[in-house]
Design a protein around this nucleic acid. Structure first.
Length: 242
DNA sequence: GTTTGTTACCCATTTACATCA
DNA sequence: CCTGATGTAAATGGGTAACAA
């Protein structure tokens, strides 16, 4: 068993994964199983991108190509706690009788998986098996990688949407403040509006204000609603009274 | 039409490990 | 150097849907 002590490799792989979030268009592949076709497609990357996410990964990828190892490394660690039974998913423990070890993908494996993910966010059985052979991994590992990759994409998308909504909220809040200030300014102005525009004062108000139709209907219909009558100002009635 | 088994997927969570203070 | 905290990716387990027998 090879112990991976190349921390830079791991770090660069993790970095490239982060930088590649939503980096390419995702397509739902045509699966060989109907269930796959019915699966929820992973949505294409958002056009709304944060500047920090648009940075190029070419430098990272270029450095990644310096390594020539192909077989993924497995690090030592604690023994596995559980294994799944009657599931068809074979754990490391079941497969080789040893404790579960966490596989660390090589840079080449990660890069190829990323490339495939950009082409298709999901894989059908044949694609999965072919990719597994190409990467010297088990199909289950390829499947898990794609599942986790879709989850990361979804999480990133959610974060972007959350940020977008936060900015929308702030914009609306600012607009609300502006409008409230505008109302305040208008109220403070003792401008002489045309008479028909002016709200009635004193005794004239009683003759000018009318019960709104809905309240009127409710009252006449004997509705038990105890809400106070809503009255509204009818400038035309006021001007007609004059 | 209903039941059962299979397959494949998503999701939440756990686990293993690297990194850093 | 050691250690605990933290972040991240791989892996697991549970649930569900579609389909065939």
């Amino acid at each position: 068993m090879e112990v991976n002590d190349d921390r830079d490799d791991v770090r660069e792989t993790a970095l490239s994964l982060r930088l590649n979030y939503d980096g390419g268009s995702s397509h739902l592949s045509t699966g060989d199983h109907p269930r796959r076709q019915a699966a929820t497609p992973v949505e294409p990357s958002l056009t709304l991108g944060l500047p920090s996410m648009a940075c190029s990964v070419s430098g990272v990828v270029g450095r990644m190509s310096s390594s020539h190892s192909v077989i993924s490394s497995i690090s030592g660690g604690r023994p596995s706690k559980a294994k799944r039974e009657n599931d068809g998913r074979i754990s490391d423990e079941e497969e080789d009788g040893a404790a579960r070890k966490k596989l660390r993908l090589t840079k080449e494996q990660s890069a190829l998986l990323e490339d495939k993910f950009k082409e298709h966010a999901t894989l059908n059985t044949k694609q999965k098996q072919a990719l597994a052979r190409q990467l010297n991994l088990r199909p289950r590992q390829v499947e898990v990688w794609f599942q986790n990759r879709r989850a990361r994409t979804k999480l990133k998308k959610t974060e972007v949407e959350c940020e977008f909504l936060r900015k929308c909220c702030e914009t609306l809040r600012e607009e609300n403040r502006r409008l409230l200030q505008e109302i305040q300014d208008l109220k403070s102005l003792d401008f002489q509006a045309p008479r028909y525009m002016q709200p009635p004062r004193g005794a004239a108000a009683a003759a000018t204000f009318q019960t709104c139709p809905s309240c009127k209907n409710r009252d006449e219909g004997g509705s038990p609603a105890a809400a106070p009558k809503t009255r509204f100002f009818n400038p035309f009635a006021h001007s007609a009274a004059n």
